[in-house]
Design a binder for these strands. Structure first.
Length: 111
DNA sequence: CTGCTGACTGGTA
DNA sequence: GTACCAGCCAGCA
């Protein structure tokens, strides 16, 4: 297992219930800002009971893939308080979890 | 080592 | 808002 994979899994595990993160965010926090695709690949291989991969979503505010279990993903999120309307996450921007908060310029983090 | 794949992303139309 | 395209990267054959 490469360190990248380890870091990704570790990060995803740190996402609190009721919050979500994009593949790109995870990739960036893991050290590779453009490796969102690779992150998805890792998610595909990991198990849901080891990692809350349902909290990792696409940057467009959609659920992204989940094998063929997107329905389950939606259920899990809703159970944690994340409302999903028509495959779009409500208040996606504010629900997005932020890893390693960049110190400077407190608060007000656009993206 | 080379090439293909995909739970992605941002830009452009 | 949606559709298509090119760039991206780790994993696997």
């Amino acid at each position: 297992m490469s360190s990248f994979t380890t870091r990704v899994l570790s990060l995803v595990r740190r996402i609190p219930a009721g919050r979500v993160a994009t593949y790109g965010d995870v990739a960036e926090a893991a050290g590779h800002p453009r490796a969102g695709r690779a992150v998805g690949n890792i998610m595909r291989g990991c198990s849901l009971r080891d990692v809350p991969c349902h909290r990792v979503v696409a940057a467009a505010g959609r659920l992204g893939g989940f094998g063929g279990y997107s329905g389950l993903k939606r259920q899990l999120l809703r159970a944690e308080g994340v409302q999903v309307v028509g495959s779009i996450i409500r208040d996606f921007r504010t629900r997005r979890h932020v890893f390693k908060v960049p110190p400077k310029h407190k608060g007000r983090q656009i993206r």
